[in-house]
């Protein structure tokens, strides 16, 4: 007896589900690319190579280049500590790591303005030393670090926890030092999760909008990242250019999705080391 539904019901459910997905996923994706290429390939390339666009790309890359490695280092250290040790405040640490996820990006940006803005906690001190954080590049970088903070850790913690301590203990028993164990045993086991965490972190660092919007001051050519530049172009009704620049980020998103598939496939192949299950 086939325990499944009638074929008609199956077909109906599948169609509705796919229709829903097409409406909400395919349409926006299609819009980005069709609008971007509306004026032809030449217009597309011009929009991307325009000076303010280029500086936006540059700033975005710079931000990512700072945010990702520092969050990577922290993420690895934190997940290692959480997975392998018991210490007071462990749960607090976990909650704190999840924090940037729970807070609206605008509020995140607001916090930095309150800290480093001219009326903020450190405002006077910064002004004294001639350092500009908010409405300047450092502010953008800091806000991005905050917002992308959890990504690496969240990928690694469940992975490392699932793997337990046995392999590390075996290595230590065989005489390996702490650092050697970490480098040769712990890290290779989580390499796919790590890779995916880095990919997510990078994508989010480059695409962050809300938090950066608050902190940046929107000074064209100076403190605009790619998403902010897209906003500027859109608000000027320069749709084709806006979508052209946006398509870069859309491509990055698709690469992220492909990376996830790759990671699941490879880590599944590496004999059940626990594939990342987070979206």
């Amino acid at each position: 007896m086939d325990r499944n539904e009638l074929p008609l019901l199956r077909w109906l459910l599948t169609t509705v589900a796919l229709g829903f997905l097409a409406l909400f996923l395919l349409v926006p994706l299609a819009v980005v690319f069709t609008q971007a290429l509306r004026g032809g390939v030449l217009t597309y390339l011009t929009a991307i190579r325009e000076p303010s666009a280029l500086s936006a790309i540059g700033l975005t890359l710079l931000t990512a280049a700072v945010a990702v490695p520092s969050n990577l280092a922290f993420g690895v250290a934190a997940s290692w500590a959480i997975a392998k040790f018991e210490f007071p405040g462990k749960h607090l640490l976990l909650t704190l790591i999840d924090l940037p996820f729970a807070i609206s990006p605008v509020i995140s940006g607001l916090m930095f303005v309150l800290l480093f803005g001219s009326h903020g906690l450190f405002g006077p001190w910064l002004a004294q030393h001639g350092v500009q954080v908010v409405f300047a590049v450092p502010g953008i970088v800091l806000a991005t670090i905050f917002v992308t903070f959890p990504f690496v850790a969240r990928e690694l913690v469940p992975l490392m926890q699932a793997q337990g301590l046995e392999e590390e203990e075996a290595a230590l028993a065989l005489g390996a030092g702490g650092w050697q164990t970490f480098w040769h045993v712990t890290l290779p086991n989580v390499r796919w999760g790590l890779l995916y965490g880095v990919v997510l972190c990078t994508a989010r660092a480059m695409g962050e909008f809300g938090a950066v919007s608050v902190v940046s001051g929107h000074i064209r050519g100076l403190t605009n990242t790619i998403p902010l530049h897209v906003e500027v172009l859109y608000n000027e009704y320069n749709f084709t250019a806006a979508f052209a620049v946006a398509s870069l980020l859309a491509l990055l998103a698709l690469i992220t999705l492909a990376a996830k598939k790759l990671v699941i496939w490879r880590s599944g192949r590496d004999a059940g080391a626990g594939a990342p299950t987070r979206g």
């Binding site: 395919l26 349409v27 926006p28 819009v31 962050e208 806006a242």
Partner: peptide, 29 residues
């Protein structure tokens, strides 16, 4: 159904796509 792995991967799009891009795309549509 045909293309299932593709559809499955695409479900994560809203998570991977920068919010501004999604925003202008939806508005235009």
């Amino acid at each position: 159904f045909p293309g299932k792995p593709l559809v499955d991967g695409l479900v994560d799009l809203p998570f991977a796509l920068p919010t501004a891009v999604g925003g202008i795309a939806l508005t235009t549509a």
